[in-house]
């Protein structure tokens, strides 16, 4: 009986650790989402719109989940350094230059990137700051 109790307490403890781990990531995600939203409003929304719908053929929408997934490692570079190449989004070619935002710190880039990839119908989960920082060092 005693062994049974100890065992169940121990397993509850382990489960507790796992649950709280997940919670930490959920908290991080919520944190990034809320800060990312503010940065999006200030820096991105003018062109990409309040619902990520883009602006005509001038600014692409941010709703192409496939594009976002395939280019995941480059998104941070686009956000910080802008884009000056032709991009195919939703099967449509966009050639306008996107401005750079050198004033954004790595953490800002991570937050706004997590916001974009988890809004407007996208659901690509959390990306930690450390990963984004590494992506930014590998920018071409």
């Amino acid at each position: 009986m005693r062994k049974y109790i100890i065992n169940s307490v121990f397993s509850l403890f382990i489960i507790g650790i796992i649950v709280s781990c997940q919670n930490q990531e959920t908290i991080d995600l919520q944190n990034y989402m809320s800060n990312g939203k503010d940065i999006y409003k200030a820096k991105c929304q003018n062109c990409h719109g309040v619902n990520g719908e883009g602006l005509g053929k001038l600014a692409p929408p941010l709703t192409d989940s496939v594009f976002l997934k395939v280019n995941k490692a480059r998104l941070a570079c686009f956000i910080k350094n802008g884009a000056n190449e032709s991009l195919i989004i939703h099967g449509q070619e966009y050639k306008e230059k996107m401005p750079a935002f050198p004033e954004l710190a790595d953490i800002d880039v991570a937050q706004v990137m997590v916001f974009i990839t988890n809004s407007f119908g996208n659901k690509q989960g959390f990306v930690p700051y450390s990963k984004v920082s590494k992506d930014l060092q590998d920018c071409k």
């Binding site: 929304q45 003018n46 062109c47 719109g49 602006l55 001038l58 230059k97 401005p99």
Partner: peptide, 14 residues
């Protein structure tokens, strides 16, 4: 080439 208020202005004017 305005990246600040013009896109919003013209989105709304549209």
């Amino acid at each position: 080439s305005c990246t600040t208020i013009c896109p919003t202005m013209h989105r709304n004017l549209m």
